Amino acid sequence: MYRLIALLLLSACVAAPKTVVVGRYRAPDAPMYSNAVMDQNRLVGTWSQVAAFGGEGCKPGGAEISRGAGGLQIRYRLCESGVQMAAAGTMASETVGRFAVPGQPGPWWILWADGDYRTLVVGSPNGRLGFILNRGPFPPDRLKAARDIFEWNGYDPRGLVVY
């Protein structure tokens, strides 16, 4: 009996693992659509994070996408739900515009890319992430389009933090 009590007391002293709370930024019953006509090869290059849901609490990051033997490769550091997330590896294509990305709480769906592939709107069906990646200047018309795309896919655009 004393051993059981001692074991319970000892287990209470062990620190629980830190859990990162991830927000849900979209209505769970809202339909969501990925960009089914995109050219995945045009994703290659350097991207800067210009906005994110839950983007308070950390600095914006970016991503480097390249071609590799196993397909598209990514190295990123992004602010997601107020937490810096970083990883590298293969962006496994689930279908056109949908990727499994290492270290992420859900798949990346490319919801929209402008015609010249300067801006990407990225979300996830589970609503745990949503952000905008960009190359070069980020004019107000593309920000408005990105907000509209998020709203179309069930996100509340008022929660988008623009850096």
Rank of each mutant, 00 (worst) to 15 (best):
M1Y: 09
I5K: 08
A6V: 14
L8Y: 07
A15E: 08
A16M: 13
A16C: 08
A16T: 15
P17K: 09
K18F: 13
V20K: 02
V20N: 00
G23L: 09
R24A: 12
A27P: 04
A27S: 12
A27Q: 12
A30G: 05
M32C: 07
A36Q: 01
G45K: 05
T46H: 11
T46S: 06
C58W: 07
G62A: 02
G68M: 00
G71A: 02
I74S: 03
I74N: 02
Y76R: 13
L78P: 14
C79A: 13
C79Y: 07
E80A: 06
E80V: 11
Q84D: 07
Q84K: 13
Q84P: 10
A86L: 12
G89Y: 06
T90E: 03
T90A: 04
A92L: 10
A100Y: 10
V101G: 04
G103N: 08
Q104V: 09
G106M: 03
W108P: 04
L111Y: 01
L111G: 01
A113W: 01
R118Q: 14
T119M: 05
T119L: 00
T119N: 07
L120W: 00
V121F: 03
G123Y: 09
P125A: 06
P125Y: 05
G130Q: 11
F131R: 10
F131L: 11
I132A: 14
N134S: 15
R135W: 11
G136W: 15
R142M: 15
L143T: 10
K144M: 15
W152A: 13
N153T: 12
D156N: 05
P157W: 04
G159Y: 12
G159I: 10
Y163L: 14
Y163P: 15
